[in-house]
Design a protein around this nucleic acid. Structure first.
Length: 186
DNA sequence: CCCTAGATTTACT
DNA sequence: GTAAATCTAGGGC
């Protein structure tokens, strides 16, 4: 099990978003290990991206997007949902993050089903707020370093044979022309 | 299958 | 004050 190094995240945000497809996200709760393969991501950048939380300026919520890469950016939205991002950017940008939109469950499926309150596989982790609920990710994980073996980190995953599908990002009202959504269908 | 509405808190304008 | 990187249930087809 090889944890992705900080250098992995020190590249252009869009490149990192694409590269994260097929990697494994690992969540340790007590002694149990829950994991899944990342199958959908989106890039959110800085000055050229009006849809990004970091578009205007640094604030209390988005400040981790301006900090060290490889850390978790967790935000709360719509009054009831958490979403999980990884901070990633190269030196050309002051901020950037990759939203994890969907995973494919591996270990701890029972726990995910319990956390979600559903037993269908199809509906388990196929959305950004669903996977945070299934993995028990909350604002407590804001700023967690994902390059260390702790309760939440990302490791090398599987080889991808499927073609990566490139689409416009989901759920935004501006900058829809940017094709920064990446996914595979398994 | 597709569509609509309601939930419910935060953070920024 | 209001929009928000969403999800679910319920109704109609």
């Amino acid at each position: 099990m090889i944890i992705l190094p900080r250098a992995f995240y020190s590249r252009d945000t869009v490149t990192v978003a694409k590269s994260l497809i097929g990697k494994r996200i690992v969540r340790k709760i007590d002694k149990q290990e829950i994991s899944g393969i990342i199958i959908e991501t989106e890039a959110y950048r800085h000055k050229d991206d009006p849809a990004s939380h970091a578009f205007r300026k640094i604030t209390e919520r988005n400040r981790v997007m301006f900090g060290e890469v490889g850390k978790a950016y967790v935000y709360f939205t719509y009054g009831m949902h958490y979403c999980f991002n990884v901070v990633a950017r190269n030196s050309k940008f002051d901020a950037g993050a990759v939203l994890i939109r969907a995973i494919s469950p591996e270990n701890g499926i029972n726990t995910m089903q319990k956390n979600r309150g559903v037993d269908s596989m199809k509906n388990l982790v196929n959305g950004p707020a669903k996977l945070t609920q299934a993995l028990g990710i909350t604002k407590e994980h804001y700023g967690v370093d994902l390059t260390e073996d702790s309760e939440l980190f990302i490791v090398e995953g599987i080889k991808i044979h499927e073609k990566i599908i490139v689409s416009p990002r989901v759920g935004i009202k501006v900058a829809k022309e940017k094709m920064w959504n990446f996914k595979i269908s398994i």
